[in-house]
Amino acid sequence: MLNHISKIQPGIKTKRISSYDRSGGNADFISIPAGETADLAVIAGAGIVKHIWITVNAPDKFIRRNAVIRMYWDGETEPSVESPMGDFFGQGFGEEYNFASLPLAAAPVNGKAFNCYFPMPFGDGARITIENQSAEPITNFYYYIDFEQHPEIPASEGRFHAWWNREITGVHPQEGETEWGVVAPQGKNPTTEHNYVFANIVGSGQFVGINYYVDNPGPMWYGEGDDMWLIDGEDWPGSLHGTGTEDFFNSSWCPNEVYAHPYFGYAKVPNKLGWMGRTHCYRFFLEDPIRFEKSLHASIEHGHDNSLTLDLSTVAYWYQSEPHHPFPALPAKEERANMPEVGVVDVHRWRHAWRNANGSKPTLWGNEK
């Protein structure tokens, strides 16, 4: 990541494109009308984007999901980066909160300042855009894009990619939601068939990180799912096979506390019953990238044997040779909305149904089987 900053390299020029007021005044922002796309940077030649900083002011409180960031390298027409803006920088669910890691951050005040330090090389031009898919304008959009101009960047330098995915996972096992075997004995899962897929890449490169956003409608621990990596077309169980979601995120024993390491952590956790609600986990493979030469299929169970209904969304980050396969169509903004929050009244209704199913005895406590 540091890229030998002590090395003197003639011929490299440091540049910036920003939203500064061209008149010399203090209106250092652009506005992006509803439904329009703004070119933040269109850069000719070869170079490396070194840092991106963004902050926005908009009447749409869900603008972090309703604005989409895209990046194109070397004149390509299909983006190498496509994600809702907030999710890309490490703020899930369209919410505002602080997030700290080495390559990405959402900085104070209250996570309103987005930062990205992933180096992004290009050999023949770069374009970075924001599409405002909101019904309202982005009133104030401030940004820096810091980059280097190089005499050349070889094609062997992998190009940066990021892809957002989202799925409301269905319960696969016939016995239903039975994490920890609470309801019934759990089955085995010798396949990736029903897993949540967060990367499906064709080409040569290395996987370097994931932001993982999970909204859990129930109080049961969401994280018994194993991560599974199939490299270069290999069969299950693959070269890398995990032991549980919290293990994949370098933690242990069902954590539910905010923790920030440069490479991994929990930027957001719920304060409800058990693990009910919205959690943001992250893991960056900066010292231990996952390398592939032909393809990479990366997935994770949603509960052991895919036994839980969850709202999962992720941004995967990797470098690869071009060309890349085009991403699936980004879901429309209506399909990116959060699921309704499950709260106290919902839990009380569950209890009421349970009481009725158990004869409505006046002294039923809640732990009777």
Score class of each variant (00 low, 15 high):
342 V>A: 07
130 I>L: 15
258 V>W: 11
24 G>F: 10
257 E>V: 01
290 I>G: 15
225 G>L: 00
298 A>K: 13
135 A>P: 00
326 P>Y: 10
160 F>M: 07
155 A>E: 14
305 D>Y: 09
98 N>T: 08
53 W>L: 10
26 N>H: 10
369 K>E: 12
167 E>N: 11
23 S>F: 08
15 K>C: 11
119 P>I: 01
224 E>M: 12
220 M>P: 04
209 G>N: 02
88 F>S: 00
15 K>V: 12
344 V>H: 14
34 A>Y: 07
359 G>T: 06
68 V>G: 15
335 E>T: 10
167 E>W: 14
212 Y>D: 09
140 N>Y: 05
276 M>Q: 13
11 G>T: 07
100 A>T: 04
31 S>Y: 12
356 N>F: 07
158 G>Y: 12
201 I>W: 05
328 P>F: 08
49 V>E: 05
174 Q>S: 08
94 G>A: 12
25 G>V: 01
241 H>G: 09
357 A>L: 14
192 T>D: 08
284 F>V: 00
49 V>N: 04
133 Q>V: 03
35 G>F: 07
75 G>N: 01
261 H>T: 01
292 F>C: 06
37 T>N: 09
113 A>H: 14
196 Y>P: 03
238 G>F: 05
206 Q>R: 13
310 L>W: 15
367 N>C: 03
308 L>A: 11
105 A>F: 07
106 A>I: 01
